[in-house]
Amino acid sequence: MSVVTGCASCGDERAAGAAFCESCGRTLATGTPPAAGADCPACGTTDAVGADGYCGHCGRLVVRPRDHAETAVATVAAAVTDRGLRHHRNEDAMWLAARDADVDAVVCDGVSASFDPDIASEVAVEAAGRVLASGVPADSPGGLAARVGAAIAVAGAAVAALASTGDPRRAASNPACTIVAACVRGREIGYGWVGDSRAYWIPDEGDAEQLTEDDSWAAHAIGLGIDPRAAAVDPRAHAITAWLGADAGPVEPHTATLRPEQPGLLVLCSDGLWNYLSDPVEFAATVRGAVRKESDLLRAARALTALANERGGADNITVVLVPIN
């Protein structure tokens, strides 16, 4: 998510400088400002990075505002997205809106093999977020899950349209991304996804649950009976089988509804985090540990992001934490 001065979802300029937009409820992310005066990692010139993020010697863009962004609403929800250590840009994007205890969240992960994957993820979260914030009644046909499905469909159309902007590079390699989204109303959670960005339910007590099933070669192979350990280490394991983009063909988002019987934590994340915590038991233990240790949602999200970077930071990282009381 790039830094916004007004509300990028509904356009309300009154949101400038505020923690959230009073019109649509979106929480506004803050980015890490460029490290003015830092050394340039490209050419090695000392004290070369200006306030605009560019090296004054070689001209390379060293730091982007989107490299790290985070947002939180007190005890209601928190989210962090980070470039990681290996990628030259952050191709993940996030969207978060909260009104009282009602929360809408979207996480998208750009497909690096496509052209402009960072644009694809940004366009997708904005498009899906606008639908979730539109105020469609939860008791409409299909309920919250249908609302999330509609949001993903709109996001898919918006990403597919990027291939028709006249840029031959986009036409040749359509911008693409994955998506996971959730709509929380009280103890009811509607969620949906396309690709391998995930949602987890971590109750205060008891076993955690991975709510989503990856659209990936590994998941498909396991479904056909291949040993999960063999599938996980296969070179094709993380190849996705569904995504948003002009070359994705007809996409039917997976949707479902969860009505937990006890308090817990809803987590949305990109594979930049769960790749380091692929077992749901380990994932839950790590998230619970971060939340208990930090006793603050945003600090917990930062700690999980830092963990992924400590373990290699091989991909962009995004995590959203939503307590359900």
Rank of each mutant, 00 (worst) to 15 (best):
D100V: 03
A101F: 05
A101S: 12
A101W: 06
D102E: 13
D104V: 07
A105Q: 04
A105R: 04
A105V: 06
A105K: 03
V107N: 02
D109W: 01
D109G: 02
G110C: 03
S112W: 00
S112C: 00
A113Q: 05
S114C: 04
S114D: 03
F115G: 01
D116P: 02
D116Y: 01
D116F: 00
D116E: 09
P117A: 06
D118L: 00
I119E: 06
I119S: 01
A120M: 01
A120E: 01
A120R: 00
S121A: 09
S121N: 00
S121V: 01
E122P: 00
V123R: 09
A124C: 05
A124L: 06
V125R: 00
V125E: 00
E126V: 10
E126G: 05
E126I: 08
A128P: 05
A128Q: 05
G129V: 04
G129H: 06
R130E: 05
R130Y: 04
L132G: 08
S134E: 11
V136H: 07
V136Y: 00
V136E: 14
V136K: 05
P137L: 09
A138D: 13
A138Y: 04
D139Y: 08
G142F: 09
G143D: 12
G143F: 10
L144Y: 10
L144I: 04
L144M: 04
A145R: 08
A145M: 09
A145F: 09
A146E: 11
R147V: 08
G149D: 10
G149C: 08
I152R: 10
A153W: 07
V154S: 13
V154P: 05
V154K: 12
G156I: 13
V159L: 13
V159E: 11
A160W: 14
L162I: 14
A163Q: 14
A163D: 13
S164M: 14
T165F: 04
G166E: 14
D167V: 15
D167P: 10
D167A: 15
D167F: 15
D167I: 15
A171Q: 15
A171H: 14
A172G: 14
S173M: 14
N174L: 10
N174C: 15
P175W: 11
P175N: 12
P175D: 12
A176G: 10
